[in-house]
Design a protein around this nucleic acid. Structure first.
Lengths: 213, 213
DNA sequence: CGTCGAGTTGATTGTTTTCAACTTTGGTGG
DNA sequence: CCACCAAAGTTGAAAACAATCAACTCGACG
């Protein structure tokens, strides 16, 4: 319902202004792989909820390094970074459907309680990611990453990663080569199986959890 | 006003329960250097605002590594981590006075707007710290750290650091030796002056900013 | 079947950690 | 006031880890 295809960013706010500011409603929008949802520094009045697919929020550094701040999967809310402008950029990791709400509608009309809970959750996730980046080895980071996505996928041992090695590297603060090598190591240690480069089977989640401590 | 000395943690909730849940009010409490404000996993119903001094929030890993998540200086609010329990521990970096409020009073009665703004700010700080830890050299981290504390101190070139080298190391995800070496390097490069190990003069803040990009 | 992009593997380099010794600082008591 | 002591900080040398540069493989797609 309300699935609106669009191409240019400029069209979006106009469409949204016409929408009723009802609690759980909002427009649904579809994004292609690598399509920009909003840019860094862009003025944003919207909050997004992932209906299907996956989204990365990131920050570019002047020398070209990219830090992926968070991956958002089904059910996650994003777009609350920055007060009037988005501090982060957001792109679809693959084909993605989002539910878009006006930001003030989300923060106030929907009840501040929900907004506070959403913010607390995001804050805690940011802290968890910070702890991961702090002083952990490549192996610990990759293991934690895999367990995170296993949990998001409902706990099954087969995990489908929607993102590329480069995305993973930029999320974990490593290089693509180090991520690749670590996957290979974990496979050699019989803790994972790489069915394909996007599909991982966790053969020994307990051992992975032990790596993360 | 309301300055209550205390020694045991057990006494605190009792005292607080008797306090009126008024907006900007709250009990003031004093803490000695290294004194625990709340522990990791502890049930907490309070939110804290720094009146004077400095606080570190941290998380211990099973192998003894410690990640300092944030330093809180005058005016900062902390204690919102975790929903019922504190996800982080908090300790006074030095002699510190805090204003303590009941958490629900802060989140609701004071107006959800203030709580949302506080949470957004904390969220954004957490993200900034994450970016710093992601893929930055020791030099970039230390430079960013110094500029952060210069800004907190009001922008003067002389910065007094309330915390030890170990605190800085655990905040930046480095070892104490690397932090020390980096300070020495920056001094050799004439970008800082180490008057004493806790007192730094930024001789060339612009150069430091350039290091951070 | 060939091409292009993504991913893997190898060799080397560079940075940070580790381990160890040394120096400075701050507090205490003679 | 000085000497002593413990804690904090600095410096050095060696080792470990991840980054870089480069070659190679794999897989999707025309």
């Amino acid at each position: 319902m309300n699935a609106i295809a669009f191409n240019t960013f400029e069209a979006r706010p106009v469409i949204l202004e016409r929408q009723p500011a009802v609690a759980e409603s909002g427009v649904r929008m579809n994004y292609a792989r690598d399509e920009e949802i909003f840019g860094e520094g862009e003025v944003g009045r919207c909050v997004y909820k992932v209906v299907s697919g996956a989204v990365r929020t990131y920050r570019m550094l002047s020398d070209g390094r990219r830090q992926i701040v968070e991956f958002h999967t089904v059910g996650d809310v994003f777009g609350l970074d920055g007060e009037r402008c988005h501090a982060l950029g957001a792109e679809a990791v693959r084909e993605t459907t989002l539910q878009v709400m006006r930001r003030d509608a989300f923060l106030h009309e929907q009840g501040s309680e929900a907004a506070i809970q959403a913010l607390l959750k995001k804050f805690q996730r940011a802290q968890a990611h910070m702890l991961l980046l702090g002083r952990h080895t490549a192996c610990e980071r990759v293991a934690a990453f895999l367990l995170d996505f296993q949990e998001r996928a409902g706990g099954a041992d087969a995990v489908d990663l929607p993102m590329s090695r480069q995305d993973i590297a930029d999320y974990l603060g490593l290089t693509i080569e180090t991520v690749s090598r670590t996957f290979t190591q974990l496979q050699a240690a019989r803790q994972i199986d790489l069915v394909s480069c996007r599909r991982v089977i966790l053969r020994n989640p307990a051992a992975l959890a032990r790596i993360c401590e």
